[in-house]
Simulated assay, not measured.
Amino acid sequence: MNTPRLILSSDVSLAGQDSRILARLCSSGRYARVRRSVYAEAEEWHALDEPSRYGLRAAAFQLTTKRQPVFCLESAAMLWGLWIMGAPRKLHIQTSYANGGRSRGDVARHLEKPGDNIVACGPLLLTDKLTTTLHLITRLKFEQAVSVCDSSLHLVRYQRPGNIFTPVDIPTVEHDPSWNHDAPQGPPLLKSELLAAADALPKKAARNRAVAVIDFASGLSGSAGESFSRVRMAQLGFIAPELQHEFELRDGRKALVDFWFKDQRKVGEFDGRAKYLRQDWAGGKSTADRVIDEKNREDQIRAQNVGVFRWTWAEMQDLVGFERLLRAAGIPKR
């Protein structure tokens, strides 16, 4: 997916043309307004998915602000590939006491004391992974906080190649500065790191909240859907499953399952769409071939006297329906 070229009103004026022409082209449908005084070709803009549009809005903001912004909270989480739900509505910017500035429009500014928690990812500045994770898990709902924490602990098996610029005196992180990551980026955090950072929080309520999330979190969770599912199971009082249990299949392959209930000999699988749609999984096979492979994998697991049950986002979000589904599968409560 090609990134659209951003066109600034100030550039048009410097070229000796009337910058109001951009507004007219926007009204005619040829251009799209990315933010005030910044435009892009409408066809290219509308072809972008939600995270890519968010990234273009961030790039437009960076081009039009006097100071280079430091992205934090959900904005930094997107660059780290942490599991948040969809693209944020606002751009989250960290500001110091010296710089000041107010939140307005689609920009939310968060006052923080200057520290050594800022890193560079390509041409972008953002809070480091530990700071980003800790700030989010003390602010979000429990299931969302667990999802973020799980992803910060998650060891990814693949990463996009880095393309890094090196600003002076700012540490760099070795991954692609993309707003559309589908896996966590950078080295995984350790629970000990998170607990030490949580212990340094000034407010007791924030410390207690962070510790509760960290204790529940697991780097074995493979997706936001799996993290949410685990929280739902706990909220409903069901026994805790083993995560990423390995089965050996008769064709010699090994298969990892999302949830394994050993005593009940039941496998639970969260059915997200990603594994059927991502191009870098399954050697670039078509969606149809992936579905067939998944069925073959499941048949070989069932052949080992194992029951398999599945659920979707919608089923997991419906607490009454999800409880019914788990009971029907024979999963007991604590």
Rank of each mutant, 00 (worst) to 15 (best):
S223V: 08
V12F: 04
R160Q: 09
G284L: 11
A59V: 03
A200C: 09
R334A: 11
G283A: 14
K129L: 14
G219T: 07
R209K: 14
A108Y: 04
Y39Q: 06
L256A: 11
A224M: 09
R209P: 05
S19M: 04
D271E: 10
G105E: 06
L277W: 09
A274R: 11
V12G: 04
H135Q: 15
R290E: 01
A42V: 02
R5P: 01
K295V: 11
D106P: 00
G284D: 06
Y158A: 15
L8K: 07
L126S: 00
L220R: 13
L126A: 11
D176T: 10
N163I: 13
D176L: 14
Y276L: 07
L201V: 08
Q300S: 14
D215H: 08
L236R: 07
F270Y: 12
T166V: 15
L126P: 01
R250W: 01
S147R: 01
P114W: 06
I239E: 12
S227M: 06
A224L: 05
R265W: 04
L79N: 01
K285C: 11
S151Y: 02
L140E: 12
I21D: 05
A42P: 00
K266C: 14
E242G: 04
M78Q: 09
T312Q: 10
G100E: 13
S19D: 09
R253P: 00
S151K: 01
F228Q: 03
V173F: 02
D251H: 06
G81C: 11
D116K: 13
Q144G: 04
A47S: 12
G122S: 15
R57K: 13
V12T: 08
P167W: 04
F309Q: 05
A120Q: 01
S52K: 13
E248A: 10
V146N: 02
Y97C: 09
K266I: 08
A234Y: 08
W281M: 15
D199K: 13
G307H: 09
Q279L: 09
I21V: 13
F238I: 08
K333V: 14
R139K: 15
S28W: 10
R310S: 06
F259R: 02
K262E: 13
Q144F: 04
G122Y: 07
G86A: 11
A200I: 02
Y31E: 00
M78L: 15
H154E: 02
V213K: 00
Y97R: 14
A196K: 14
L48F: 09
I93F: 02
A255P: 02
I170W: 10
G105V: 05
N180D: 14
F216H: 13
D182M: 10
L6D: 04
R67K: 10
G219I: 06
I21L: 10
R310D: 11
R207L: 03
V148T: 05
G321K: 12
A108Q: 15
R232Q: 09
F322C: 07
V148S: 03
F142H: 12
